[in-house]
């Protein structure tokens, strides 16, 4: 009996170990494809990479984009510190292969096979097209190197056990599209920008006790993760602006009442204003297609 129990226990641990193992992309993911850095610059803007990975004192409009990391993101689970993802071969990701970077972006897995914390929105980027990821990587390689070492996250027990993130990923990663059904091609493009690259939901959707997104309240607003105030509901139940007004806001930061964006949205608009106008209109069309939630 004891022996049987031991076998079950060992099998359980082995099973859990197996299930929580870091996933990775097949070696031929990018076979026959080439990355285009110019297209990648737009993916970089749409995915909002600079909003987290720029050095703390650097503003989004800086002409040289130096991804030295160091910005701090407080959360209920501890404080995450954005790492250096510049092209420096030691401090940054200059020595990583394309597949290494893609595994990080899409699966949240380091080249050494460790899970990343989901403060890095890889659950969103998992929906990104491989060509866009390759273009993004090509663009990242053109950016300057910076030798500032990444700092360790300030995360306490039990959240500092990275393997447990494998379980978190089983629960919350690879969810696919949240808004489905019949979408116009424009709204579908908007969904790609909002759900695969732009990760709007990371702030605008509330989270459960384990930090997973509550997809039943998609974009319906949430407490500000940094603790001050609330991030607004942007479903059609609350966001009643016209599509033109939404697109204009994503371009200039002006609301229809000529108030302006504040907080983190200033960085977001720094990104969306770099996109083609058709992409801003697409995001507006998508936001109109999101189910209204009071």
């Amino acid at each position: 009996m004891l022996r049987a129990l031991t076998i079950v226990a060992v099998a359980g641990v082995a099973g859990a170990w197996f299930l929580t193992r870091p996933a990775s992309l097949p070696d031929d993911t990018f076979a026959g494809m080439t990355g285009d850095p110019e297209a990648g610059a737009l993916v970089f803007a749409a995915a909002g990479c600079a909003s987290c990975h720029l050095a703390p004192e650097v503003t989004e409009t800086a002409e040289t984009v130096v991804l030295a990391g160091g910005r701090r993101f407080a959360s209920d689970f501890g404080t995450f510190i954005a790492p250096n993802i510049s092209s420096d071969p030691e401090a940054g990701i200059g020595a990583w292969s394309d597949l290494d970077i893609a595994n990080a972006v899409i699966h949240g897995v380091s080249p050494e096979g460790a899970h990343y914390y989901p403060a890095f929105p890889y659950t969103t980027y998992a929906n990104a097209a491989p060509q866009d990821v390759l273009d993004l990587i090509a663009y990242l390689r053109t950016l300057p190197a910076d030798a500032t070492p990444s700092q360790p996250h300030e995360v306490g027990f039990p959240f500092n056990i990275r393997r447990s993130l494998g379980g978190w990923k089983l629960l919350f990663a690879d969810a696919g599209w949240t808004v489905d059904g019949d979408l116009s091609p424009e709204a579908e493009r908007g969904r790609y920008l909002a759900e695969a690259l732009g990760h709007c939901a990371e702030c605008h959707t509330p989270r459960n006790a384990l930090g997973g997104l509550d997809r039943s309240r998609w974009l319906a607003g949430a407490p500000n993760p940094s603790g001050e105030g609330n991030i607004p509901n942007i479903t059609p139940a609350e966001l009643t602006w016209s599509e033109t007004e939404i697109a204009e806001y994503l371009n200039s930061g002006f609301t229809p009442e000529f108030d302006t964006a504040g907080g983190e949205m200033v960085d977001v608009i720094g990104n969306t204003s770099q996109l083609p106008a058709s992409d801003r209109t697409a995001i507006a069309a998508y936001l109109k297609a999101v189910p209204p939630i009071e």
């Binding site: 105030g229 907080g263 960085d267």
Partner: peptide, 8 residues
């Protein structure tokens, strides 16, 4: 507004 105003 980025640094000095609360979101909502």
């Amino acid at each position: 507004h980025r640094a000095y105003r609360q979101p909502e």
